[in-house]
Simulated scan of single mutants.
Amino acid sequence: MRPYKPKVKAPDPELILKTDHILQQNSVTTVCKESACPNRAECYQRGTATFMILGDTCTRACSFCNVKTGRGLPPDPTEPERIATTIKELELSYVVITSVDRDDLPDYGAKHFESVVLSIRAIVSDVKIELLTPDFKADESALERIIECSVDKLAHNEETVRRLSPSIRSQSNYDRSLQVLKYYSTNFSGPVKSSLMVGLGESKKELIETMKDLLEAGVEELTIGQYLQPSSSHHPVICYYPPEFFEEMETKAVEMGFKAVASGTLVRSSYYADRQSY
């Protein structure tokens, strides 16, 4: 099946160059740049960006993800301040902080998340912060540390439906992700978000069942986007959905009770993150 090719706004070259220069100068990694996200210029123009912390090496090997697998380096104690400085220099108003999985660390990286938030708050007090976390293997001490961070939104991605989860997220777990989301929604006062990819072989019925599971876990905000295969060695795209499908899923999600939904071909978990809050 041939993919639907959406139109993407041409990026502002000066803005991209300026942003990339500041990122390089401060040795900071963004998901926006590393993944060559088609939405990054649009996000930069709105004053938003997604930063990846704790290195570029993941301890897991999900079949959809292009991040390299292995044992990462120890957390860099200078990274929190470098990220905070970058946010100030770029004059960002909304940031998403995410990371690779770090199952090799005793706390799975939770303390480093906290350090990043504290540095941001110390240098840029008025920026809004969303944490998009791994599952920390549902370790409650790690989850509690995240809850105690002074942030505006918490997120953890379920990624796919129950049937496909073992093959798509081999070292993760569908129910464990629901457990993490439930812990967040029960103990955190702000909104909780999750994201799904489609085109991996799921049925519409399975997708709706997953949306029900997310609602029962207390998720209030949802993004749905088309999966795109990073390379021939990754999980293949089984289906490219037309725009009408995403419109249908957005309408359905709102009818089911989600308070904010972004659904579209190029939608990613942090796309329009600043506008998803209700």
Results as ranks from 00 to 15, higher is better:
L118Q: 15
P3W: 12
T251N: 12
E220A: 07
V198K: 05
F258Y: 13
S119P: 12
T57V: 14
Y272G: 07
V117I: 01
K205Q: 09
S269T: 02
P134R: 11
E144I: 02
Y4E: 12
S231M: 07
E14A: 14
M197I: 02
S189H: 07
D139R: 14
F245M: 07
K128L: 09
M197P: 09
G70W: 05
A36W: 03
H156L: 12
S35D: 00
E89Y: 03
G218K: 05
P106D: 11
R40L: 00
V116A: 14
S35H: 05
E144P: 09
L266D: 00
S170H: 13
S172A: 15
Y271C: 08
S172D: 11
R60H: 06
R176D: 02
E221D: 08
E42Q: 07
L222K: 01
L143W: 08
S141W: 04
C32P: 10
S93L: 02
I120G: 03
F64V: 03
Q179F: 11
L164D: 04
P134H: 10
S189D: 14
C65R: 01
T210W: 07
G47L: 01
A262Q: 08
G225Q: 02
R176A: 06
G47V: 02
E244I: 06
S119I: 06
N39M: 03
M211I: 04
N26M: 05
S233R: 10
H112R: 09
K68H: 06
T186F: 07
N157L: 08
C43A: 07
K68D: 04
S233H: 08
T133E: 03
S167N: 10
K193N: 12
L200P: 03
D126F: 04
E140Q: 13
Y271Q: 00
K153T: 15
L181N: 01
K7V: 10
L92S: 13
P166Q: 14
E247G: 08
T57E: 00
T265D: 04
M52N: 10
D175I: 11
F51H: 05
E79V: 04
T223A: 05
S194P: 15
P230C: 15
V31H: 05
Y174T: 13
K33A: 03
S177R: 00
S167A: 15
E91W: 02
T69P: 08
T186R: 12
G201P: 15
N39T: 04
N66T: 04
H235T: 12
S125F: 04
K153L: 15
G225C: 11
M256H: 13
S232L: 13
Y4D: 05
